[in-house]
């Protein structure tokens, strides 16, 4: 494959094909994100723009919850940083995946395409990454992600509450599907996840009982930094 690199056009259409199942999953999850965004007072067009250019389920979820709380703009930066820190690692991993001749402009565009799933298939591309493969996966999946959010915001007020209630957990289902496989393989991750569940419940309960003025988003940031730092100290990784 390295000696016979595929053309940009072939790589792009391959990216489209591999991106299609990702796009379907995105639509369903974004639909559920849309419900949540609607509760946070977003309009369908705001949901579309926000999702199209951000493409980060957990990050968007976190920021939208800040909007409804009327939190400060600085906390939006903090929330985006904390919920999307993994993209920093993913992009760092991708720097090793390009051929030497890849222009800075294409590298930056690939960086903008990074999500959990698109990073996953891009890093799995045989040999050096042809940026057009990533662009193909981006081109098919992003409209589904943005449209899903918009449809969710619109449908949130139309669908019966029973259906909204059921679909509201789709997003959490996706989060679970991301955190459980590594927990199964790695006991340290498993312990960190278990501690996160427990402390999240405990701290939120204590905060609500004592009526301390801490937003849910702020609690998320504080807990994430604290638990991750402790995990990194107690059980540093050997290799990544």
């Amino acid at each position: 494959m390295k000696n016979n690199p595929m053309t940009d056009k072939t790589a792009f259409s391959k990216g489209l094909t591999h991106g299609f199942p990702i796009a379907l999953g995105y639509f369903a999850v974004a639909f559920s994100l849309g419900f949540m965004a609607k509760k946070c007072t977003l309009t369908p067009i705001q949901g579309f723009i926000g999702s199209f250019f951000t493409r980060a389920s957990a990050g968007e979820y976190g920021v939208y919850s800040l909007i409804v709380q009327d939190a400060g703009y600085i906390s939006v930066i903090a929330m985006s940083l904390v919920t999307n820190l993994r993209y920093l690692l993913m992009s760092t991993a991708l720097t090793q995946k390009f051929s030497k001749g890849t222009s800075l402009f294409k590298r930056i565009l690939v960086g903008c395409c990074v999500t959990d799933e698109i990073f996953g298939i891009s890093i799995g591309f045989p040999g050096e990454l042809n940026p057009f493969y990533t662009f193909g996966a981006f081109a098919i999946s992003t409209p589904f992600w943005a449209l899903g959010t918009t449809c969710g915001i619109i449908a949130g007020s139309v669908l019966p509450s029973r259906a909204v209630s059921a679909l509201s957990v789709a997003l959490y289902g996706m989060f679970i599907a991301i955190i459980i496989p590594p927990s199964k393989q790695n006991r340290a991750v498993c312990a960190a996840v278990a501690a996160s569940f427990l402390l999240s419940w405990l701290i939120r309960y204590l905060v609500s009982v004592s009526q301390i003025d801490l937003s849910s988003g702020t609690i998320t940031i504080i807990l994430t930094i604290t638990i991750s730092a402790i995990a990194a100290l107690v059980k540093p990784i050997k290799d990544l």
Binding site: L89, A188, V189, V193, S196, T220, A231, P236
Partner: peptide, 28 residues
């Protein structure tokens, strides 16, 4: 090593913290 380890744990911890107990509050 600390930064690498910290960054490694962050995604899982964030998602876990955001999932529970929020999932029990999202449903009727």
């Amino acid at each position: 090593r600390f930064i690498r380890s910290f960054l490694y744990y962050v995604p899982y911890v964030t998602l876990a913290v955001m999932t529970f107990p929020a999932i029990t509050e999202a449903t009727n």
